[in-house]
Structure formats: C-alpha cells, structure tokens
Design a protein around this nucleic acid. Sequence first.
DNA 1: TTGCTCCTCACGTCACGTGAGGTGGC
DNA 2: TTGCTCCTCACGTCACGTGAGGTGGC
Lengths: 275, 275
Amino acid sequence: VFTVGEFATLAHVSRRLLRYYDEIGLFRPAHADAATGYRYYSAEQLAVLNRILVLKELGLSLEQIHSLLHDGVSTDEMQGMLLLKKAEIEQQLRDELKRVRMIEARLQAVRDAETDKPLDVIIKPVAAQAVLSLQMVFETFDDALRMQRAIRHALPEKQGYGFGFLMCHDDDILDRDMNLEIGCLLPEQQHVPVALHDGRQLSVRSLPAVETMATTVVQGPLEVIHAGYGDLGRWASLNGYRPTGQPREITLKMASSFDAHDLITEIQYPVLPLH
Amino acid sequence: VFTVGEFATLAHVSRRLLRYYDEIGLFRPAHADAATGYRYYSAEQLAVLNRILVLKELGLSLEQIHSLLHDGVSTDEMQGMLLLKKAEIEQQLRDELKRVRMIEARLQAVRDAETDKPLDVIIKPVAAQAVLSLQMVFETFDDALRMQRAIRHALPEKQGYGFGFLMCHDDDILDRDMNLEIGCLLPEQQHVPVALHDGRQLSVRSLPAVETMATTVVQGPLEVIHAGYGDLGRWASLNGYRPTGQPREITLKMASSFDAHDLITEIQYPVLPLH
DNA sequence: TTGCTCCTCACGTCACGTGAGGTGGC
DNA sequence: TTGCTCCTCACGTCACGTGAGGTGGC
C-alpha cells in the first residue's frame, strides 16, 4: 500500500494529478483515512491508472474516460468513441497542415516584399445579400465612376441604404468596355426600384451566398483596388484555393477627397479549396 | 464609424471578441465615449483587425500578436517567430499522427480480443537505478523461484530494500537454462553486498537509465507475466517501436498465496521509436 | 413608450501547476 | 526535536461564450 508520493513516483505522474483525479471521482485511492485525509493506493490500482493514462494519451477527455470506466460501455460504444476521436484528430491534422502552408506562404511574402506589408486575407462565409443595382457595359472606368456618383445622388441619404457595391461580370479584368454592376447593399429586403435622372432603373436582386469567400481590405484609390484583385488571386493559388466566381467589392468608406487615399474597400473573391 | 455590433458583423467576429481585445489592449476602438463607454470603430480598423485574425489563424497567441503589432519587430524577428511556430505545429503533427496510430492499434485490439481487455502500455523514461542482485543460469524456473525466496529471506525486513527485481539476460525467452538476474531495487546508493546461506553473494550494480521504456502492469502468476512479455513485444511493433535491450520485471506486490493470483508485476521493455 | 443595442461585471471552460499555510509520523 | 510528507484551499492558465442586471438612443 502506497502514499500519494510513492504512488506518484511509481506511475510517473504528479501528486497533484492523483489528488485531482480523486477530487473529480475519476480515480479514487483504495483507502482514505477519514481522520487525517491521507490517501492510500494499492498496487492493483497502478493498472487502472495506467489504463486512464493510455486513454488520455489517445486524446479522450477525463469525462469520457470516466464514463468508459464507470458506466459499463459496450465494445461497440467503445469502438464508436475511438472512431469519433480518430475522425476528430484527422480533421485537426488537416487544419494543421493548412496552417503550415499558410505560414510558409506568409514567410515567402515577408521575404519577397520587404517593403510593403504582406496581404491579410480572411476566408469567411458570406450570406445571401439583397442589392439595388444596375448592370451595363462602360466604355471607360471614368464612366463607371460617374455612374457611381449618379447612383449615390439618386438615393435619398440615410434611408436604409447600405454600402456601395461593385461587381465585375467579365471573365477577365479589362481596361475598356467593362461589364460592371454598380449599386449598393440593401439591409432590408423590401425595396422598390429607383429611377435615375437619365431614365435608367436600379433594380433589386439577390446576390447568392458564398461559403468560402476570400476577402481582403484595401485602402486607397482605384489602382490600389485593381492591384488588390491580382494580389488576392495570387494569394489563393499560394494557399491552396481556386477562384470560382465573380469577385465583388464593397465600399466601406467613401473617399473624402479627390485623390481617394482614404477610400476603403473590401474585395471579395469566391474560392474553393483545391482539396 | 461603426458601433461594436456593426463592426462585429462586418468582420464576422463576436462583440465579445472586440470588447475582449479592447480589454487586453490588443485592438482598441478608434474612439470611445468617456461618458457612456460606447466603442466606435473606423473602417480603417478593419484592415488591422483582419491582420490580427490572420496571425491568430497561423496559431500565434494574442500576446505574440500584440508584440508583433505594437513593439516594432524587425523582419528577421517576424521570420523567427513564424519559423518557430511552424516547427511547433510540425511537432504537433507528428504527435497527432502517433495518436492516430495508437487509436488504430487499440481499435484492432478491441476487435481481436472481445474477451480479454486490451493491453495498457505506458512509455516513460526510467532513471538509472541501483540494484542488489545475483546473476546465474537456472536449469528450471522453479530453481529461480527458490532463489527469489532465498534472497527475500536473506534481506533484513524493511531495512530500505525496495521492490523485487528480475532481468532476463538471454536474447530469446527460453524455457530451460535461463540466464537470469534476480534481486531487489535499492532506494539508496550505499549498500554492502549481502551473503546468502549457500555462500553466494548478492552484489550491488547500477541499471542504466532508459529514455523510452515501454511498461505494462500485469496481475497473476508466472504464466501471465510470461504472456505479458509477448504482448508487450506485439504492442511495440503495432505502435511503431522496436525492442532495444533486455526487459526487466519489478514485483510491486508479492503473492500472498500459492496460486499467486494477486502477484502484481510491472514489465519494462526498453524500446526505440522506428522513426 | 417600446424594443434594440450598448455597457460592465462575473462565472465557466479543461486539466492540472504552483504556492500558501498548516498538521502528522520518524 | 527537526525535516519530510501529507493535507486543504485558492489563484492562474487561454480566449473568449454566456448570461445577469442595468442604461441610452430611435
């Protein structure tokens, strides 16, 4: 019969662990002195403790181990728990592999671009979104900018209209004759079409939800936004993603001055993991 | 300018996260109303938060991220942290792969042996250990048992002698003419040789430390112990280890009766990972 | 005036590590 | 009698989630 210290030495665990397992009822000493509180363990118990330690090594929680040992679980249930745990660990393995790839990509980015900062890309699900917009082909980008301003003025200020929105419907990024959709997000569902001065109509439609949207935030004028699209594409291929749809951009903050250095835009690119 | 709720929605994080990051000084709102305590975030800040979220994804702690952002760290230091983190994750990957192998081995054991329990094997480092022992060739196992009893009686009871100890010096497990070392562990270093009745001497020597010792606890008479050696060997090969030295056994509890059903023995087998 | 958002505590998480402060056996 | 071990609190960990209870703006 052994004291905590002796038993801890035998089992290569800490005394605290033995007291803790006693406290939570997972592993009780064979005998405890009611007067002094001293715990006494038997040699037989070492086998039991070892079983607990092995199950812990497998990644099971102490609560799971408790139910395995004290509630009589069947062989099938045991197998179920082990298979479940195995699946969990395999998911973790995939996550960590992804993490390693991301770190490598970032290391590369740090080395490449000592001057400018590496790109921060967030993958997130984006819900379906109502927009009020107009789609047409613009000869030049200035035409598109003029339209953007016209739309802004056509909307009554602060009447429940959301961020500015732009979506490119060309397969490639062009410099002229671009097929663009311009408008704004709608926080609420019910909205009537809005007419512009030139007779064109903004119409309401719903952007589909995207499960894995690669997003990044850029600050600056159009050239910066333009560069952002390219950066995002390169980031995707470096990090194991493939573009899979039309990118969007959302104006989080409108430019206050002509040079648009304080224009803030979130670029969103639907992607899929390469698997 | 956005409230917590709005900014949280934009960034796809919880309000609690934003308040927490404020509390620990990692990410403060651009402006806070001193009277009401209301937090106000700017569009510019979304880029900063995204950087934090990306670094978190990489596996860095909030404290590390804090120092990355607020203490001006050099490119080299940044690379150092990333490389360190990468090495950490790769170690974790190895650990989890091992865990998966262990789970698979245990699943197999559960399927194979529906009747008896799977073996619980603990890998632990064992320190160098002084022993008082005698090594000789025994014709039969009964001879060895007699010697074990003789040694027990030659030792003054409770005078600082430890557990009974047995080590097999044959390369294979034999049934006859076994080269065995029998004795006991010595908790303290200083001990004189002990003479037996037949004139033989128990001598003091030091067992070397073993870094990775596969150990298991068995309860029962000799046949059970014998089987344990075999089980331990099979376990090792199933779990990616290779035996690499002489096994030892330690008597944690002596048998009280002739059938020895309550004899408790720890079998120790030095192993090395197959890598 | 009624919801909605905002705020600040404060507890819970998981498996112990690490003292603090005090008592019993050789 | 002096160390050594034992005991029971109780705080800290890491990054928030989850209410509780109360206040300010449309």
